[in-house]
Design a protein around this nucleic acid. Structure first.
Length: 279
DNA sequence: AAGGTAACCTGACTGC
DNA sequence: TGCAGTCAGGTTACCT
């Protein structure tokens, strides 16, 4: 389900909900295995009695700061994390964290998502537990000040991997998933097959701008509406109509109106592009 | 050592 | 109607 914009929308919704400032009263888990952890009441038991202080995002991970622990949630492909007044009978619900008023509910049909606890050291109050982040979250935050065109160009130096799968590795910039990688490359007119290190500095700077714009626009629109995305209040996103090439194989290119958009597979993932506009 | 591949799991959709 | 096959927003361990 979620790329960075969707996760950001969820985080903002949770932060604006009634849950921050409240204490955990009870926890419940389905007992089923998630990506790494098992969704069980035992695993979340340390949270009982702790107050939720704030909610943050790094890459596609959600960090919930409690008094003495971080709860780090990854939504995988199909996860949802909602702040509710009453428990909702959502299929594939795996975790419920009840507060004095309302609850946090995690559901995930495919269980590629995850929810793990990390201790909050007294000396590291403000530091996120970066050990919770994998190899795909090492790069720069795309909307942060350190993600500059110069840094982006430098990161691509000498990279022979095709730029589309390279973008998705998170080596340079985090949070650009399968949809927005295709969209950004289309906007910049860069072939997804071109080696990252062989795109000119000028065009990399252009791509840098498109990545920031597309992600920011998607956040503004409330996240993608693809499939089953829901924000922290359970509402759908409104960005789906804005996909110009994703899932549009066979349609006329919206830019040149001559070529037919194509679907290819790179690193086991679908890529959509215009063979005429993107070089 | 970078880059491709299989795997995790369920549901929706297509075609026969 | 049903069954088999394919595909899906992510990540990572394991190959070459």
């Amino acid at each position: 389900m979620p790329e960075l914009p969707e996760v950001e929308v969820v985080v903002r919704g949770l932060a604006a909900s009634r849950l921050p400032g409240q204490r955990v009263q009870t926890v419940w888990g389905s007992g089923l295995a998630l990506r790494h952890a098992t969704a069980s009441a035992e695993a979340l038991a340390p949270l009982v009695g702790q107050r939720l202080q704030r909610v943050e995002r790094r890459a596609k991970s959600i960090f919930l700061a409690f008094d003495r622990h971080w709860l780090v949630v990854h939504l995988g492909m199909t996860g949802t994390l909602q702040a509710l007044d009453q428990p909702a009978p959502l299929p594939h619900t795996h975790l419920r964290i009840h507060f004095g008023q309302g609850l946090l509910q995690f559901a995930d049909p495919r269980r590629f998502g995850d929810a793990r606890l990390y201790p909050r050291g007294p000396g590291a109050e403000e530091a996120l537990p970066t050990e919770a982040l994998g190899a795909s979250a090492r790069g720069m935050e795309p909307l942060s000040e350190d993600f500059t065109p110069e840094a982006f160009i430098a990161a691509a130096q000498g990279v022979r991997q095709a730029i589309k799968p390279w973008l998705m590795t998170g080596q340079a910039v985090v949070g650009v998933g399968n949809i927005y990688a295709s969209e950004a490359l289309f906007a910049a007119g860069i072939s997804p097959l071109r080696a990252a290190g062989r795109v000119s500095a000028q065009r990399m700077a252009d791509l840098h701008g498109h990545i920031r714009r597309i992600l920011a626009d998607a956040i503004e629109a409330g996240g993608s509406t693809l499939r089953d995305f829901r924000d922290a209040q359970g509402a759908e996103g409104r960005y789906g109509g804005a996909h110009r090439v994703y899932d549009q194989a066979g349609a006329a290119c919206p830019r040149c109106m001559q070529a037919t958009l194509r679907r290819i597979v790179q690193a086991q993932r679908s890529t959509f592009y215009c063979p005429r506009c993107q070089r």
